[in-house]
């Protein structure tokens, strides 16, 4: 029984990561490469330079196939991670995911875990000037946690008072505000706005694909396994 939950989640997550990679390799990664070209032009070598450059250089994938293959692998592992988390939450909350409600789970997962933090911290191209990493990660995790909890509470209890509290909780991180990027007067300008806009749309689209495949795939697989285990 445990096995079914874990297996369905991992399978749905890996497949979702693969599906999302179609958008990534076809579109998003090309925009990242384009942004890196600006980054190199502005500030020398690509990526973040580690503070101490004395030790051996850390692994970095070769451009082209190796880099894309690792991106697909990372997407699949991230998909499995998100699907397992969703499975864990749904199991603990005793709110089963199935074929009928899987897409709804996926959609609200997308809103809570992707869209809500993106409202304050839009997906960033390499080279984008942003606030200190730790503060952004703290805001990201807090926003994800409170938004997802609020959604679950509404789905579970469906009372006006819970709805009002949930709405306040969902708004709170945005009223407090995400860590703001420092104003750069005389430094690198970062990637052009048009490129950033294209990138944000591409990432949101690919994350929507990921979430919908996870939600529907996990629910459908659970139903299928249940049917096999107890033939009517």
């Amino acid at each position: 029984m445990f096995g079914r939950i874990l297996f369905a989640a991992v399978l749905a997550g890996l497949l979702a990561g693969l599906a999302m990679s179609v958008v990534q390799i076809g579109r998003t990664s090309a925009l990242i490469l384009e942004a890196e070209a600006y980054e190199v032009a502005e500030s020398g070598p690509t990526g973040v330079a580690p503070a101490a450059e004395t030790g051996p250089r850390p692994f970095s994938p070769a451009p082209g196939f190796e880099r894309n293959a690792l991106t697909v692998l990372a997407n699949m592992l991230l998909g499995a991670g998100i699907a397992l988390t969703l499975a864990g939450v749904s199991t603990l909350a005793n709110m089963p995911v199935n074929t009928g409600n899987g897409l709804v789970w996926g959609l609200f997962g997308f809103i809570a875990i992707t869209l809500a933090p993106a409202f304050g911290l839009p997906p960033e191209l390499p080279g984008k000037i942003a606030a200190e990493l730790g503060s952004r990660q703290t805001w990201w995790w807090s926003t994800v946690l409170v938004t997802a909890t609020a959604f679950l509470a509404v789905a579970r209890f469906r009372t006006p008072i819970v709805l009002v509290i949930a709405a306040a909780v969902v708004l709170a991180p945005h009223l407090i505000g995400a860590p703001a990027a420092p104003v750069v007067v005389n430094g690198p300008a970062g990637p052009p706005a048009g490129l950033t806009a294209d990138f944000v749309v591409a990432t949101l689209l690919q994350m929507l694909v990921l979430w919908l495949v996870i939600g529907f795939g996990y629910g459908w697989l659970l139903d299928r396994f249940a049917k096999k285990a107890t033939p009517a």
């Binding site: 990526g47 991670g81 960033e124 952004r136 990432t203």
Partner: peptide, 24 residues
Amino acid sequence: GVGFSSDMAVHNGAHDARHAAGLP
């Protein structure tokens, strides 16, 4: 592990996936 590890090898390998997922 995939999205937030500060290990540079993991960071470089998962770099494009992290950016696409909108993770800080």
